[in-house]
Design a protein around this nucleic acid. Sequence first.
DNA 1: ATGCAGAAATTGGTCTGACCATTGTACCAT
DNA 2: ATGGTACAATGGTCAGACCAATTTCTGCAT
Lengths: 242, 242
Amino acid sequence: MLDLPPLQATARDDAVLNVLADFVIHEELKPGDRLPTERVLSERLKVSRTTVREALTRWEGLGLVERRQGSGTYLKAAVSRDMLHLPLTFASGNDFESLMHTLEIRRGLEAEAAALCALRAGPAEVEIIRQKLEVMEEAFHSRAGMSSDEDWDFHQAIYRVSGNPLFEQIISAMHELFHRFWEHPLGVRDFGHASFPYHRTVYERIAAGDAEGARGEALKLIATVEADLRRGDANLKRAGYK
Amino acid sequence: MLDLPPLQATARDDAVLNVLADFVIHEELKPGDRLPTERVLSERLKVSRTTVREALTRWEGLGLVERRQGSGTYLKAAVSRDMLHLPLTFASGNDFESLMHTLEIRRGLEAEAAALCALRAGPAEVEIIRQKLEVMEEAFHSRAGMSSDEDWDFHQAIYRVSGNPLFEQIISAMHELFHRFWEHPLGVRDFGHASFPYHRTVYERIAAGDAEGARGEALKLIATVEADLRRGDANLKRAGYK
DNA sequence: ATGCAGAAATTGGTCTGACCATTGTACCAT
DNA sequence: ATGGTACAATGGTCAGACCAATTTCTGCAT
């Protein structure tokens, strides 16, 4: 049977988002750009400001847009007409177990990204990654410890070169949550110290085009982080903080 | 009924969600249950209906709640106080490349889940997986082809036994999107036919407690699916459908 | 001219009260 | 019982106003 019902019920807020997506595309707005005022949109679209706000609230919830009172509404991510939304919500349980769970997810993704990266990286891409690696290594030696920012840059370069934008999106989202809830994970200083040498071995396998080797080194890298965290957790428990 | 206290600060819509989460927990509401009217909430929380609606719009966007005009607002998923939201949105681009991208994500997660499953599965869990495997194999032989449902049951069993609920949540969400947009992937019949034998090898590695072996077999399994799809895509192109 | 403090305009956030569209229910005629 | 109709409840939209944070403008002192 032909599916007839999609007739225009009361779904104006949805329509607003479609029109707004068209607008963003037509105006070639990029992340960081400001989009029209709620009042302007309301007038131009001939709908109430309430409806515009409901629509923008949806986009805000999806992380597509950021609202700043007194300033405006800003684009936060690229918008296209055919977007898939995959809202995951799970109980965090601010505990150690949950942290391990997110790390296991990251391990699977990190390993796959490294493998794909090894397959698809050309000389130019290898050079980019090498540069990030050296910046990270220099930061490590000069400050005698892992540097979150430079470390993250290195990993992101791998996700980008993997040729699959989903890796960066998913892991970045997790990374953001990670830092929001465990700002200083379990009080572990030199967090990830032991993982340092594996950054270079991962790079070497990628440069050699060795997918399975890169996957293996990436797995080892995350494993050392996991071990670090477990040790930190055990210390906390022994100290009676838990 | 739990007594819903009034609110004051500015971040009201956010505060509404916290209180509402408390309410849902206290009332032990389960998915499918109806939660209070917008007007009732507005009155009990001493907040305008507008604010209540903005809050509910957020939950709706996250898939936690479903609104039915004329009927009410219904809980759609379990709610806890500390929930992490990971809204992913990416361009679908109903094309072959996007399908491959989602499959690469799944490969990384599937491999990790299988490895963890091998580490943590006790005799009872192994038995559960074996049962799912045999149901699937029987369906395969009697109907001379892969059966989506039984295949999916088998994989889900692995996610559950992995001891990490995130695997099931993430892959299930992707699976749902997958089927919504590529109902019959590229017209490939016997989709995943070649992957059949690897289900048993994955099971065997899990039963043996061989994490790396399980990871390897899972990788091979997804690789065959990928190869199947590539072949189907090539066929379509050759036939001039694209 | 320049720099800076305060006023004014801008913008998102909330409120109020009303009406519309859809759904569920009770009641009535058959 | 059956089916239809009126009515109440509920989410969706609207209009206009005010609040709070931010930005921009203005004018005075330097």
